[in-house]
């Protein structure tokens, strides 16, 4: 296995951390996420490159440190430090029943669209986000397509009136 699970002492000894294919991965939880990210930003991770989510409905077993309880959803945040030339990944577990997370907008305003995309395709709500609406799918669409229990197959044309008509 490429992932050697170990406990990281750097981040106050509280944030479990792993290595995955040469990149550091932190596993904060929902409560301390904002604080962790604020600290990281001060350490030089000034760019939030990407926010995405994974639905682990069909694959509950995965490489997580022992102290992290796997949940159905996982938010993956990719940060980049220009000065260190280093990437860092944060994986946050989100339970199925309460799919919410505090927004990163006040730290990285660039997360706005990325969070909206996750909201649209996974149905995870970001609390405090200025504009938590669908971004890719039509506004009155039902369901969240990238969830694993959403069928991929074709569906009939959901013909709604054109905007502005």
């Amino acid at each position: 296995m490429p992932d050697d699970t170990k406990t990281n002492e750097d981040n106050d000894g509280t944030i479990p951390s792993t290595m995955s294919h040469g990149q550091n991965v932190l596993h904060p939880n929902r409560e301390n996420l904002l604080e962790v990210i604020k600290n990281l930003r001060e350490e030089g991770f000034v760019v939030c490159i990407d926010i995405t989510a994974v639905d682990y409905l069909e694959n509950p077993k995965r490489d997580l440190p022992a102290s992290v309880k796997p949940e159905r959803f996982e938010i993956v945040i990719n940060l980049l430090s220009h000065t260190k030339r280093e990437r860092l990944r944060l994986r946050v577990q989100i339970p199925e029943l309460e799919p919410t997370l505090p927004t990163l907008f006040d730290i990285y305003p660039g997360s706005e669209a990325l969070e909206r995309e996750v909201h649209d395709l996974f149905g995870i709500t970001f609390e405090g986000h200025p504009d938590m609406t669908r971004i890719l799918m039509p506004e009155n669409w039902e369901g969240h397509p990238l969830r694993k229990d959403y069928d991929i197959g074709k569906i009939p044309v959901q013909f709604k009136e054109a905007p502005g008509s």
């Binding site: 890719l136 799918m137 039509p138 669409w141 044309v157 959901q158 013909f159 709604k160 009136e161 054109a162 905007p163 502005g164 008509s165």
Partner: peptide
């Protein structure tokens, strides 16, 4: 796309 369909028709 499903979103574009009404626009296309319009």
């Amino acid at each position: 796309s499903q979103k574009m369909a009404p626009v296309l028709r319009q």
